[in-house]
Amino acid sequence: MKKLLLVLFVLTAFAANSILCRIALKNGHADPQTFSMLRLLGGAGVLFAWHLARGKVKEIRWKIIDAVLLCAYVLFFSLAYVQLNTATGALLLFGAVQVCMIGWGVIKGEKLSGVKACGILIAVGGIVTLLLPGATAPPLFAAITMVASGMAWGAYSVRGKNIKAPAGTTAGNFILGLPVILVWSLIRQAPVQIDASGILLALLSGGLASGVAYVLWYALVATLSSATASTLQLSVPCIAAAGGGLFLGEVPDIRMLICTLVVLAGIAMVIAADRKQREKVKRNDFR
Rank of each mutant, 00 (worst) to 15 (best):
Leu178Trp: 13
Gly177Glu: 07
Ile194Arg: 07
Arg283Met: 09
Cys21Ile: 14
Leu47Trp: 05
Gly206Arg: 10
Lys58Pro: 00
Gly198Thr: 06
Asp195Lys: 13
Ile144Pro: 01
Leu121Ile: 13
Ile181Tyr: 09
Ala196Asp: 05
Val82Trp: 09
Gly114Met: 04
Arg61Cys: 05
Glu59Phe: 03
Ala155Pro: 09
Gln277Arg: 09
Glu279Gln: 15
Ile107Cys: 12
Glu110Ala: 01
Asp285Thr: 10
Gly109His: 06
Gly244Met: 04
Gly154Thr: 11
Pro252Met: 13
Thr231Lys: 00
Leu232Pro: 00
Val221His: 05
Val183Gln: 03
Trp62Met: 08
Tyr156Cys: 04
Arg255Ile: 12
Val68Tyr: 00
Thr260Arg: 05
Ile107Arg: 15
Arg22Ala: 11
Met151Lys: 09
Thr169Pro: 00
Gly28Ile: 10
Phe48Met: 15
Lys2Tyr: 08
Ala209Glu: 04
Leu234Asp: 02
Val221Pro: 02
Thr34Glu: 04
Gly211Lys: 10
Ile239Cys: 02
Ser230Tyr: 03
Val74Ser: 12
Lys280Thr: 06
Ile194Met: 14
Phe35Thr: 01
Pro133Glu: 07
Cys71Lys: 00
Gly45Gln: 11
Lys276His: 10
Gln233Cys: 09
Arg39Ala: 10
Leu11Thr: 05
Ala268Ile: 05
Pro166Gln: 13
Ala143Met: 06
Ser18Leu: 13
Gly245His: 08
Ile23Cys: 06
Ala142His: 12
Leu8His: 12
Leu121Glu: 02
Val7His: 03
Trp50Ile: 14
Val281Met: 05
Thr170Trp: 08
Leu261Asp: 04
Leu4Ser: 13
Ala222Pro: 09
Gln277Val: 00
Ala137Met: 15
Ser149Thr: 03
Leu257Trp: 15
Gly249Glu: 03
Gly249Tyr: 07
Gly105Trp: 09
Ala148Asp: 04
Gly172Leu: 03
Ile64Pro: 11
Gly42Gln: 11
Arg278His: 09
Ile175Val: 15
Ala53Arg: 15
Val106Cys: 05
Trp153His: 08
Pro179Thr: 02
Leu40Asn: 13
Val106Met: 12
Val10Cys: 08
Leu140Asp: 01
Ser149Ile: 01
Gly245Arg: 08
Gly266Leu: 02
Pro252Trp: 14
Ala117Thr: 01
Leu200Lys: 12
Thr169Tyr: 02
Ile19Asn: 11
Thr260Val: 13
Met1Leu: 11
Leu5Trp: 12
Ile122His: 00
Gly168Phe: 13
Gly55Arg: 15
Trp184Asn: 09
Ala190Lys: 14
Tyr214Glu: 06
Leu25Ala: 08
Val7Gly: 00
Ile194Thr: 11
His29Ile: 07
Ala272Asn: 10
Val270Thr: 02
Met101Ile: 08
Leu201Ile: 04
Lys3His: 06
Leu264Asn: 06
Phe14Lys: 08
Gly105Lys: 11
Tyr218Cys: 02
